[in-house]
Design a protein around this nucleic acid. Structure first.
Lengths: 230, 230
DNA sequence: GTTTTTGCACTGACCAGTCAGTTCAAAGCG
DNA sequence: CGCTTTGAACTGACTGGTCAGTGCAAAAAC
């Protein structure tokens, strides 16, 4: 149905400092210059609009209006509409991979197996998607486009996500936990797809279900506990 | 723009078989075959352009030019750009579900299990994607869009695909082949995602690999033969 | 003689990007 | 202090261009 396009909270985590220029200034050390706040507002406005309508169908005027700034401000802060989009992509994927890597690392520290790590990453992935549904939508929609200006950004951003999973798979093969016959890149892609599509479906069609519930279903599928009745 | 090599020279005049539409023409009945051929050319032109650039970024002039047809002809055959797109979606999804259903049915007739049926559907899905990569790309990109004119078409078209898989899963649960604890809709969505993303990755980044190869990798993943070394 | 296609000019809306001018907040100064 | 200066940040009307969709007479196909 409506799917309510989730809130997309801010949380910049890590100052991006593009076009530096803070001159002498001092202050702001802890984080928020006026400019950074504006950029953040623009990200938030853009992510929901582009997720709903797509990049081309979203106008800069709309983005500016939703962010509560003038159109000129968009161009003061970003070189162009596509640059805004590219930086948005990088920003979001940064958050995602960080979250995935954290999950894997925590599992390691707790002495878990690689299967546990994979499971934790699925959970982290679901958590991310639940928190940033609009970004996820946009990511899926644009990821396989060809012939686009931001082609290279797309590649980087795809590889970043897949690589995190591939690392865990490879480690699992190395320590004998996984069959050495598995196809690491393909399996990683399949896992990403599984989580992505299941989560988008969850958000769109059964948003009342809990993360635990969805996680359990995917876990069961992953571990082959589907066949074999109980 | 149109005056390059002279208008109306259909290079494929004799054999319209590219999107496998000619099978269903007879069944659908009605409509002259000339008109049908024009519509087919427009579908083919539109599907690649939209897959590459997205719906909004693709112009009607481009579609007409690639199809080797005058712009007026587009509007003689379709009420609008969006209608053309919607019918394209329905058309493509029809082919996909038909192929999936066939696969499941064949397995049944051959006395296979539901696991076999699922496996056959994965293979059929991969085959479809290999044959119509552009359509698949477009499908993924538009499927989770909200706030769009063709919202309802999207719903129908999504449900059609998922339903085929859900049917098999439910049958498997009924005959005890699958655990009755599986979450049918979610598992179906996850399977779709797994195949979709793995296949798009295959097409984009390792196109030299064979379908059998990719199929084997997904089969292994599905049947939990990932963990458990050697 | 009917259906379909063509070619092309036209319109009205829409939109990315620009730029001359305005506001803001902090630093300098008496 | 309060006043002035400075430059970054922001504004919004404007421009040059694009594009979906129309209208129609004539040609082509059937």
């Amino acid at each position: 149905m409506t799917s309510a396009t989730g809130p997309v909270s801010s949380d910049v985590a890590g100052a991006v400092r593009i076009n530096g220029m803070e001159r002498s200034t001092t202050a702001t050390g802890g984080g928020s210059s006026r400019r950074e706040a504006t950029r953040q507002k623009l990200y938030e406005a853009a992510v929901t609009l582009i997720a709903e309508q797509g990049f081309s169908a979203t106008t800069v005027d709309e983005i500016a209006e939703r962010a509560g700034v003038a159109k000129g401000t968009v161009y003061y802060n970003f070189a162009s509409k596509s640059v805004l989009f590219e930086e948005l992509l990088r920003h979001g994927v940064g958050l995602l991979t960080e979250s995935l890597r954290d999950a894997a690392e925590q599992t390691d520290l707790a002495g878990g197996t690689k299967v546990d790590a994979l499971d934790a990453m699925i959970r982290a992935g679901l958590g991310f998607i639940a928190r940033y549904p609009a970004f996820t939508q946009l990511y899926v929609a644009e990821l396989w486009r060809t012939n686009r200006a931001w082609q290279s950004t797309l590649m980087v951003v795809r590889q970043q996500v897949v690589a995190v999973i591939e690392d865990v798979l490879r480690a699992g093969v190395a320590n004998g936990e996984f069959s050495d016959e598995i196809d690491v890149p393909l399996t990683a892609a399949a896992l990403v797809g599984m989580v992505l599509v299941a989560a988008l479906d969850w958000q769109s069609f059964q948003p009342e279900r809990s993360l635990d519930d969805v996680h359990a279903a995917l876990s069961r599928l992953l571990q082959g506990r589907v066949s074999g009745s109980r």
